[in-house]
Nucleic acid binder design. Structure first.
Lengths: 166, 166
DNA sequence: CTAAAACCTCAACCTAGCTTTAGGTAAAGA
DNA sequence: TCTTTACCTAAAGCTAGGTTGAGGTTTTAG
């Protein structure tokens, strides 16, 4: 093996990356301090990036659009191989992972929606019993594997609870 | 009219509200500075609340669970009548309003999901063409009234775009 | 060779949504 | 009455996710 691999992998400057990824240079610095991306330095101490940094940034942006925090995104990115440039299957695996996350979020929103639905009937939002007020119940229920709507007692409590409060 | 209305409407102290609504006293101070709730002062300059502040806080918490910012929540709350204690229909109207917001958010997430779905097929996330990378397209499309999936060209661009990038 | 453009670091600043701290007053109970 | 608990204000601090600015170096274009 010669230096061929270095010749074959052009390095991008921070400005080039910023332009191509449509983010500010300061954002790249910021991501680097947070360990989301990596760079090497040239003789003059300027950052140089491998091309796959573009895909990492794409992943970061996609994750953010799904409401995933940078910390979680970092964890997901850390599952990528260090030893080689991530390939198609590596990225696809991440897509699948996030799709599952997204499914959970959507399901959560749907449950909240059902509750708001139920609350319209009684104009409630009772502090004690209204599930809309206590969405932790949903989460707890989620952990139990049971769905709130399957919980007749709570469901009933949500009906006509308006008068019990101001 | 006598002072009957005052006798009939017990006022709560900040500590009582905090306990019943399960929020910190500092949070109530904070909400007050932001104009989300109101209080009156007793002779000793201590806050006193009308009971319906509990419902307002319930609404604030419910809105936050739906990902609505305090500013938007404030705007929604400002649609409540000033002249009288909000009634059942007032609160129900708010529920309906937020249900619509929630529907939009769910729809947005579903569209993002569709895209991630498409991206799994090619392991892409291309900077140029992948819709997962350019979710603004969704929003823009949303404004146009058209749905991304109805856009065959973009949909096609999402296929096999892996090789065009690192 | 020189000037402009790009880059560097470090620190301060920004919004949102609160919490904590400090120093002081009011109310409640033994 | 005395002491504890609750409350008051104002300002500072915190996390997330960056942006802005100051002061200095490197690279690039003419």
């Amino acid at each position: 093996m010669t230096v061929a691999s270095e010749r074959d992998e052009p390095r991008l400057s921070v400005g080039q990356v910023a332009k191509r990824a449509d983010v500010a240079v300061s954002t790249l610095h910021f991501y680097e301090t947070k360990g989301l991306i990596r760079s090497w330095r040239n003789a003059g101490n300027q950052r140089r990036y491998k091309k796959d940094v573009l895909r990492r940034i794409a992943v970061i942006k996609a994750g953010q659009k799904m409401g995933i925090s940078l910390i979680e995104i970092k964890q997901t990115l850390s599952t990528l191989p260090e030893s080689r440039t991530p390939n198609k299957e590596d990225w696809a695996r991440m897509s699948r992972f996030w799709q599952a996350q997204l499914d959970e979020k959507i399901a959560y929103m749907m449950r909240v929606r059902e509750m708001v639905d139920g609350c319209i009937g009684c104009g409630c939002l009772s502090m004690k019993s209204c599930p809309m007020y206590n969405p932790e119940d949903i989460v707890a229920t989620e952990a139990n594997g049971a769905v709130w709507l399957d919980h007749p007692e709570q469901a009933k409590a949500a009906k006509n609870c308006y008068d019990s409060q101001n």
